[in-house]
């Protein structure tokens, strides 16, 4: 017994180091695994509160930018209003078709990261506003990400600039779909993989969210095709998609409540 105590006292630093190393490595590995939310995330009152304060200051510096974006959105809405008679074009103009106003929660990005392989955003609304895990996040230009963690007042979003995201996406004019990933290289581009070779595509075509996703409604803008890679071994294309959104400059975002999701999930569980 005496010797055990002696051993512990003598190596107390090493034991402390090993225990803490074990904890931190566990947290690291856990955060890299798919389909599991992080234990340590910025959706909590401490970091959320600090980021909100910092963001309040930063907002003043970005007022001009934000105004420009709002003006653009206004112009677009106005053009929709004036062209309302032309029902054929009105449908394509409305980028969030099928989403009613009451299904949307408005939130503000208080922390944005885009310089690592796994990027997250922090929003200033949480469970109290009705945000739940796995809701889709968009803004007026296109998709942004998916809600990952929530606390009463804050929530974190797994950005499309994250290697763990996979979103169902399709070519707007042809309904051929693939899955959207990010290769970690540039903040302006994401990759659409597993698109069948049968699809007729050319550079400049628009990519929108596909109907298979229960997180996003169909036909939400993502970006345009910038580059096409042909893989001769498989029968699939890989595309570079230039995002409509500037992911390094995000202000207000919309969170979409999907009412059908639980129903779809329950149905799929029965299979």
């Amino acid at each position: 017994m005496q010797q055990i105590f002696n051993f512990i006292f003598k190596n107390s630093n090493r034991i402390l180091f090993l225990i803490l190393l074990g904890i931190s490595l566990f947290l690291t590995i856990q955060s890299h695994s798919f389909h599991r939310s992080k234990i340590i995330s910025s959706a909590n009152f401490l970091s959320g509160g600090v980021y909100e304060k910092v963001n309040n200051l930063n907002e003043y510096l970005n007022l001009k930018n934000e105004n420009d974006i709002l003006a653009l959105e206004n112009a677009k809405l106005r053009s929709m209003l004036f062209n309302v008679k032309d029902t054929a074009t009105a449908k394509t103009l409305d980028s969030i078709e099928g989403v009613k106003l009451k299904d949307i929660i408005v939130a503000k990005v208080i922390k944005n990261s885009y310089n690592v392989y796994e990027n997250y955003l922090t929003l200033n609304s949480g469970e109290l506003q009705g945000i739940k895990t796995d809701m889709g996040v968009i803004n007026s230009l296109g998709i942004i990400g998916i809600i990952e963690n929530t606390s009463p007042k804050y929530s974190t979003v797994i950005s499309i600039l994250n290697k763990r995201t996979q979103i169902n996406a399709k070519i707007k004019k042809s309904d051929h779909f693939g899955s959207l990933n990010w290769n970690g290289k540039s903040t302006g581009f994401v990759q659409l993989t597993d698109l069948p070779r049968l699809a007729l595509i050319k550079i400049g075509d628009t990519i929108v969210t596909g109907g298979q996703s229960v997180i996003f409604p169909e036909n939400i803008n993502i970006g345009t095709i910038a580059k096409i890679y042909r893989d001769n071994v498989t029968n699939y294309y890989t595309l570079d998609v230039k995002l409509f959104n500037d992911m390094t400059n995000l202000g207000h975002v919309y969170i979409i409540k999907s009412k059908d999701r639980e129903e779809v999930n329950n149905l799929e569980k029965k299979n």
């Binding site: 180091f17 190393l21 690291t28 955060s31 910025s42 990261s113």
Partner: peptide, 30 residues
């Protein structure tokens, strides 16, 4: 060692990086 761990964990908390900062700080402290 204990305060380095705390330092790293707080950094992780703020930058959504799991436990990478905590591990790096611990290794450096040791």
């Amino acid at each position: 060692i204990a305060s380095s761990f705390l330092l790293g964990i707080i950094m992780d908390l703020f930058s959504n990086s799991g436990g990478t900062h905590a591990t790096a700080c611990l290794v450096l402290a040791y």
